[in-house]
Amino acid sequence: MSAFIRISDAVKTFGDPDSGGVRALDGVSLDVAKGEVVLVIGPSGSGKSTLLRVVNRLERLDSGEIWIGDDSVTARRADLRRIREDAGMVFQSFNLFAHMTILDNVSLAPRIVRKVPAAQAREAAARLLERVGLSDKLDRFPRQLSGGQQQRAAIARALAMNPKALLFDEPTSALDPEMIKEVLDVMTALAEDGMTMMVVSHEMGFARAAADRVVFMDRGRIVEQGTPEELFSDPREERTRDFIRHIL
């Protein structure tokens, strides 16, 4: 299987590198195949969120290269619009546009970025919202929905751009326990449909149900990776073992 997202020797430092800035990514290489679901775990500050954010270039790398399919993410003249159409993102705090209805949230980007006619964009948005179980909430504003509903709407919004891959940055961390499942169910269904996914999350249930591979990061490096079974039941590295004991 050929790699769809290729990250090679990625380095990203926050703050002034000369006076002990933080190396969020310290030479990370990772390939994600088409249709693969990769779960990224690790302690806070290990660089896992940064790893997602450099893939759609919300953050720029200091050095290293990233490709999504044939599109270079890191080239100086990279086509940002194309990259972000390729890889959609779902955020921990949902970030739905607060001044718009759910339907408008989902149909805005297709309309103004991809120039889809308004009626068509709305129709497509309604279909996507139905798919995530929100067909009765189209005219609601984000603040009128529960956290779980908001996150499902945010997933629909990302899907509306027909992305080839989705990046999930701790999608359930801001949710009450009873809402986590409804979001994970949507994500699992996407994984089963063959979506390429990079997911930063510590949800073991999701890992076992949907992840093809789990990557453990610490201090800006990939320490260990393997199938969920391998990593959770029989980690090779001491640091991985410590961490997994903590989250189980």
Partner: peptide
Amino acid sequence: GQVEAAHALGMS
């Protein structure tokens, strides 16, 4: 986060 979400959707 609103700005990031918009950028992540490809908006200029």
